[in-house]
Measured scan of single mutants.
Amino acid sequence: GTVHVGDKTYHFPTPDAAKKFAQEIAKKLNLQVTVKNGTWQVH
């Protein structure tokens, strides 16, 4: 899975790992999470 946070991109071996990371970052930074075609965006 891929997660975009601002101008950074993180790659994870599984979709679940990407989802978990995106949700944790969003919670920590009080941001929104959207997913499109398996790519997570934190914004």
Rank of each mutant, 00 (worst) to 15 (best):
N37I: 03
N30E: 05
F21M: 03
P13K: 12
T14I: 03
W40K: 02
G6I: 08
N30A: 06
A22D: 00
V42E: 03
L31K: 04
V3L: 03
H43M: 13
D16H: 10
E24P: 00
K19E: 14
K27W: 06
W40Y: 14
T39F: 13
V33D: 01
V42A: 03
V33K: 01
E24T: 12
N37M: 04
W40F: 15
G1S: 11
Q32W: 07
V33C: 09
K36S: 12
T2F: 08
K8V: 08
Q32S: 13
T9W: 14
N37L: 05
L31I: 05
G38R: 05
P15N: 13
F21E: 00
H43I: 14
L29N: 07
D7R: 14
F21S: 01
K36N: 12
V33T: 06
K20V: 09
K28P: 02
H4K: 14
F21N: 00
L29P: 03
K20N: 10
K20F: 09
H11N: 08
T34M: 06
T34A: 06
T9F: 13
K19W: 09
L31A: 15
F12A: 00
P13V: 08
P13A: 13
A17V: 05
H4D: 05
V5G: 01
K8Q: 10
P15Y: 14
L31W: 14
N30Q: 08
A18H: 00
A17W: 05
T14N: 09
T34I: 09
T34P: 01
V33Q: 02
T9V: 14
Q41L: 15
K27S: 10
K28E: 09
W40H: 05
K36W: 09
F21Q: 01
N30L: 05
D16R: 09
V33H: 02
L31F: 07
V35G: 15
T39A: 15
K28T: 07
D7L: 12
F12G: 00
A18V: 02
V3A: 04
V5Q: 02
H43W: 09
D16M: 10
T2Y: 09
Y10H: 04
V3D: 00
H4R: 14
V42N: 02
G6K: 06
N37E: 10
F12L: 04
G1R: 11
V33E: 02
K8H: 11
V3Q: 00
K36Q: 11
V3G: 01
Y10W: 07
T39N: 14
F12Q: 00
V35P: 03
K28C: 11
N37Y: 04
L31R: 06
W40D: 03
F21T: 01
D16I: 08
Q41D: 10
T34S: 13
D7M: 13
V3N: 00
K36A: 11
L31E: 04
T34D: 06
V5N: 02
Y10Q: 01
T39D: 15
Q41T: 15
V35F: 15
V35S: 09
Q32T: 14
F12P: 01
T2V: 12
P15E: 13
I25F: 05
K27T: 10
A26Q: 03
Y10C: 10
V42R: 00
W40E: 03
T9E: 09
Q23I: 15
V33Y: 06
A22L: 03
K19H: 10
I25Y: 06
Q23F: 15
D7A: 12
K28D: 06
V5A: 04
L29E: 05
K20C: 13
D7W: 11
L31Y: 07
Q41W: 15
F21I: 02
N30S: 07
Q23A: 08
I25W: 06
F12I: 01
K19Y: 10
P13M: 09
D7Y: 12
G1V: 08
T14Y: 05
G1T: 12
G1E: 06
D16P: 04
G38V: 03
Q23V: 12
Y10K: 01
N37S: 04
F21K: 02
K27Q: 10
K27D: 09
T2R: 10
H43G: 15
A17R: 07
K20E: 11
G38S: 06
T2H: 06
I25P: 00
V3C: 04
V5F: 14
A22G: 02
N30I: 03
E24W: 15
N37D: 15
F21V: 03
V3M: 01
G6H: 10
Q23Y: 15
V3E: 01
V42D: 03
A17C: 07
T2A: 08
A22R: 00
K8A: 07
Q41C: 15
G38A: 05
K19F: 11
N30M: 06
G38M: 05
H43L: 12
V3F: 01
T34R: 06
A22K: 00
A18F: 02
D16Y: 07
P15D: 12
K20M: 10
G38F: 07
F12W: 03
T39I: 15
K36D: 11
G1K: 11
V33G: 01
V5L: 11
H43R: 07
P13R: 10
G6M: 11
D16T: 10
K27Y: 07
N37F: 04
T34G: 05
D7I: 09
P15I: 11
A17L: 13
G38D: 10
H43K: 08
Q23L: 15
V3K: 00
Y10T: 02
A22T: 01
V33P: 04
Y10F: 11
K20R: 13
V35D: 07
V5T: 03
L31Q: 05
F21L: 01
Q23K: 09
V35E: 15
K20L: 10
V33N: 01
G1P: 10
E24Q: 11
T9P: 04
A22H: 00
A22M: 02
Y10I: 05
I25G: 00
V42I: 07
G6Q: 06
F12H: 01
T39W: 08
T34W: 05
K28M: 11
G38H: 09
A18Y: 01
D7K: 14
P13Q: 11
F12N: 00
T2P: 02
W40T: 04
G6L: 13
L31T: 07
V3H: 01
N37K: 05
D7Q: 12
T9Q: 08
Q41Y: 15
V35R: 08
N37H: 04
K36F: 09
K36E: 12
F21H: 01
L29F: 15
K19V: 05
Y10P: 01
A22C: 02
W40I: 13
I25D: 00
P13S: 12
K36L: 13
Q32H: 13
A18I: 03
L31M: 14
K8L: 10
Q41I: 15
I25M: 09
Q41R: 11
H4W: 09
L29V: 03
L31V: 12
T39K: 12
A22S: 02
L29M: 08
K27R: 12
H4F: 10
V35Y: 15
Y10R: 02
K19R: 13
T2G: 04
A26D: 01
A17H: 07
L29K: 05
K28F: 09
T9D: 06
Y10N: 01
K20I: 10
P13F: 08
Y10L: 05
H43Q: 12
K8T: 07
K27E: 11
N30T: 04
K20D: 09
T9N: 05
V3T: 02
T9A: 08
V35Q: 12
W40M: 07
P15V: 11
G6W: 12
Q23W: 14
T39V: 15
N37Q: 05
T2S: 09
K19A: 14
D7S: 14
Q32F: 09
F12S: 00
Q41G: 05
K28S: 08
K28Q: 10
D7G: 14
G38P: 03
A22Q: 00
F21P: 00
E24A: 14
G6P: 01
T39Y: 13
A18E: 00
T2W: 12
P13D: 14
A17N: 04
Q23G: 06
H4G: 04
V5P: 00
K27L: 11
V5Y: 09
P15Q: 15
K27A: 12
A18P: 00
T14C: 07
T2Q: 08
K8I: 09
V42W: 03
N30K: 07
A18D: 00
K8F: 11
W40C: 06
G1I: 07
H43N: 11
P15F: 13
G6S: 04
A18W: 02
A17F: 05
G6T: 03
F12V: 01
D16E: 14
A26Y: 01
K19N: 07
G38E: 06
P13I: 07
A26P: 00
P13H: 09
G1H: 14
Q32C: 12
K28N: 06
V35M: 14
E24V: 10
T14M: 04
K36G: 06
L29A: 06
T34F: 07
Y10E: 01
P15W: 15
T39H: 15
V35T: 07
G6F: 15
T14L: 04
I25H: 03
E24K: 13
L29W: 15
T2N: 06
G6R: 06
G38Q: 06
F12Y: 02
